[in-house]
């Protein structure tokens, strides 16, 4: 698979480390509340496990060490979009 890095251009996926769904950006912020344990459980352990277009986090370990959000079809492995994770995170209203 070739990942079209927004800053560096096309790179072999072997240069990257895979983390998982982009949902992992959205870590619960209510950690001081008792009720947060259920939120953290859902965040940490439960996955949508989508068959189709999946937004996922890849870390360019052997490159510029940026985190990317890659939209990839889990049935065909076709990559249709690559964004910088920090842009995605900001758009979600979080810090970088």
């Amino acid at each position: 698979m070739i990942i079209n890095h927004p800053l560096l251009g096309p790179r072999d996926s072997e240069e990257f480390v895979y983390l998982g769904s982009t949902d992992l950006i959205d870590r619960p912020t209510n950690w001081e509340e008792d009720a947060s344990s259920e939120d953290f459980y859902q965040y940490q352990y439960i996955r949508d496990n989508i068959a189709g277009n999946h937004r996922e986090l890849w870390y360019h370990e052997q490159g510029d060490q940026s985190w990317l959000v890659v939209t990839r079809n889990t049935i065909t492995h076709e990559i249709t979009n690559v964004e910088l994770a920090q842009d995605v995170s900001r758009a979600m209203g979080r810090g970088k």
Partner: peptide
């Protein structure tokens, strides 16, 4: 294929395929 099948019952799992 657990993710695909159980999604039809509305159940999410602690599993990735």
């Amino acid at each position: 294929s657990s993710g695909r099948v159980m999604a039809k019952a509305g159940i999410k799992l602690p599993i990735e395929s």
